[in-house]
Structures are given as structure tokens and as C-alpha cells.
Simulated assay, not measured.
Amino acid sequence: MIAAIIGATGLVGKSLLELLLDSDKYQKVYVLGRSQPHITAHHFGEEKLHYIACELDELHELSLPEPIDHGFCCLGTTIKQAGSQQAFIEVDKLGVLAFAKLLKRQSHPTLVLQVMSALDANPKSSVFYNRVKGEMEQELCQLHLPHVQIFQPSLLIGKRADSRTLEQIGQWLFNLTGFLFIGPLKKYKPINALQVAQVMVNSVQQASKSVSIINNHDMHNQH
């Protein structure tokens, strides 16, 4: 099978790329983005990586060398990193949709597209972040791709290349109070980025519905 991933330099994307390269299910892994990912040494996986340099606003005019079986979108930023609400929208909504449309153009009858979203994504939310994520999910479903799997993690745990103060505080608090996230609160329990990536790899092989939502609770239960 052939895979394509965008957002491979992010927290989940880095782990996911490693897993895809290690998997004997994929002959090639196309990586799209402005920066070439740095990967650890692989005994057979490194030669499977094919990097395509592009900006998000170039995705609409891009064509991939061959049909993609599984697409993985791990795009995600913060308003602080993006610089403005509009710049945030261009990554977390428009960038995601542009990648989805790129894959749709190939008309692969059994394509599976996985997309990272967020807990409490809702197009009607009064919270800007949640609303944009919800709008992205809503418009993604309207593209009518063969199989879409949307992942909604809570706070992601892991070492980022960039500093996100709120996430660092959240991870510190979780280390102190993690035992409290049981029962109904499990929905909000922070989750390790590698665990999310592993669930994504496992789930892509089991796609059956046109649209599936895998929430934070589901991901913890699959660990």
C-alpha cells in the first residue's frame, strides 16, 4: 500500500511517520510539507520515504505521483504560533480540507483518510478553537470521501520541538492528578502522542464506515 502524510513534523505526526515507515504494509510513504522530517535510522523503512516540498496554499495545484491508499493529516497549530485567528484557520481548517481534496482528486475507491481534530470540536461552539475544528470536521464530511476517520484527542503528552506553555502546564498537572481521570472524566484524560499514533495505525486497517469518530475515551480504551 501507499501512504501520504501531512503534518509529519508535529507531535503526533513524528510518531506516526516512524510507525508507517516501520510497517511492512507500506511500500512507499509520501511526506508533504515545507520541512523535510528528521527520522531515526530504520533497517528498511528509510528508503520508503518520499518527500514532496510544498506550502499549504500550493496543495490545490499539486498532483501526487500515484494513487494513495491511506492518507494521514496531522496538521495543527495554535493561534500564538500562527500569529492570528485567520492564520490559524488557514492551517487547522483550510489546510486540512486542501489535503483531503488533493486525495479526493485521485478517485481511489477505497481511500481511507485520517484527520487529527480535537476534543469537543463543534461548529457551533462559542470557543474559537473548538468551533474551527468543528467546522473543519463538518466540511470534511461534506466531501464524501470513501472512508474518513476523525480523531479527537484531549491534551497531548509528549516532547515538542516548539514550546507550548499551556500544554507544558497541563502535562505537569496531569503528572500530579492523572489518577483522578476515571469514569466520566476519562473523556478528558491527557493522552500520549505515541499512543494516538498507534491507534491511528491500527484503526486505518479496520475502516468500514464512511465517517468514523474516534474520541479520546476510545483511544485510551484501545491502548
Results as ranks from 00 to 15, higher is better:
residue 4 A to I: 00
residue 4 A to R: 01
residue 7 G to L: 00
residue 11 L to F: 08
residue 17 L to H: 14
residue 23 S to L: 05
residue 25 K to M: 04
residue 26 Y to A: 01
residue 27 Q to P: 03
residue 28 K to Q: 15
residue 35 S to M: 01
residue 39 I to F: 04
residue 43 H to K: 08
residue 47 E to V: 07
residue 48 K to F: 07
residue 53 A to S: 14
residue 53 A to L: 09
residue 55 E to H: 12
residue 64 L to Q: 11
residue 66 E to T: 07
residue 68 I to N: 14
residue 70 H to Y: 06
residue 75 L to Q: 13
residue 76 G to Q: 07
residue 77 T to S: 08
residue 77 T to M: 05
residue 79 I to Q: 14
residue 79 I to M: 12
residue 83 G to H: 13
residue 84 S to F: 10
residue 84 S to K: 13
residue 86 Q to T: 15
residue 89 I to W: 12
residue 91 V to Q: 15
residue 93 K to W: 07
residue 96 V to T: 14
residue 97 L to M: 08
residue 100 A to D: 09
residue 101 K to L: 03
residue 106 Q to T: 06
residue 110 T to I: 02
residue 113 L to F: 12
residue 118 A to V: 08
residue 119 L to G: 08
residue 122 N to Y: 00
residue 127 V to L: 05
residue 140 L to K: 11
residue 141 C to L: 02
residue 143 L to I: 14
residue 147 H to G: 00
residue 147 H to Y: 10
residue 157 I to P: 10
residue 173 L to P: 11
residue 181 F to C: 02
residue 184 P to R: 05
residue 186 K to V: 03
residue 190 P to M: 02
residue 198 Q to F: 02
residue 199 V to N: 12
residue 200 M to K: 08
residue 200 M to Q: 06
residue 202 N to G: 06
residue 219 M to Y: 10
residue 222 Q to C: 01
residue 223 H to M: 00
